[in-house]
């Protein structure tokens, strides 16, 4: 009974994080769905084998390992297109979807965010995993070190490199904005 309640709480808390991480790593929403489901099934099968406070690290480590397995098995990172560019007209999509009071600003902001997401997805795997976990998922350096099983100093170095690389990717846009 308690395990079921704990499991549901963990699913609610981590489902979006698992899915987000998978989507950034795999660049494909279908594969991200598969990984999310697989992680949650493994979580159910392993409930009680780890302490609840350590569940976050366990879940993200499993997600990361599964994503790496997917990438190695299918080499989808090279073969498939970026999930944002699935239709090649994501900007048009965003233009159609705005419902806010200031449509121009919202649309512009969405385009910017999509460009950044796109740039994040183009980062090398090791830099991307650290960047996504820190900046998007909100994990701390220590937690990331535990999830990815790398020294904390490496996490900091990867983070710095990822930020620089991202800036390189976005330099045209950033200059335009500045």
């Amino acid at each position: 009974m308690l395990e079921t309640i704990g499991y549901k709480a963990l699913v609610n808390r981590y489902k979006n994080r698992i899915f987000s991480y998978s989507i950034y790593m795999l660049r494909n929403s279908m594969d991200a769905e598969d990984v999310t489901q697989e992680v949650l099934i493994r979580l159910w099968n392993n409930m009680g084998k780890f302490k609840l406070p350590a569940a976050g690290s366990w879940i993200m480590r499993t997600t990361h390992n599964l994503c790496i397995d997917y990438l190695r098995r299918n080499q989808i990172a090279r073969q498939r297109s970026v999930y944002i560019d699935e239709d090649d007209n994501s900007e048009e999509k965003i233009m159609d979807n705005h419902k806010e009071n200031q449509p121009e600003i919202t649309t512009q902001q969405n385009i910017v965010l999509e460009k950044i997401k796109n740039a994040v997805q183009k980062l090398p795997e090791n830099l991307k995993s650290v960047f996504v976990l820190y900046e998007i998922e909100g994990f701390k350096y220590k937690e990331i070190s535990s999830v990815l099983d790398i020294p904390i100093n490496s996490v900091k170095v990867y983070m710095l490199r990822a930020r620089k690389k991202l800036q390189e990717e976005l330099k045209d846009y950033a200059r335009q904005e500045a």
């Binding site: 899915f19 769905e33 999310t36 489901q37 965010l113 950044i116 997401k117 930020r163």
Partner: peptide
């Protein structure tokens, strides 16, 4: 500018079909 925009990136919503 980039950092500000990065902080605004939301988590992707996990589809209900998965759950």
């Amino acid at each position: 500018q980039t950092a500000g925009n990065v902080k605004k990136i939301p988590l992707e919503e996990c589809p209900d079909s998965v759950i």
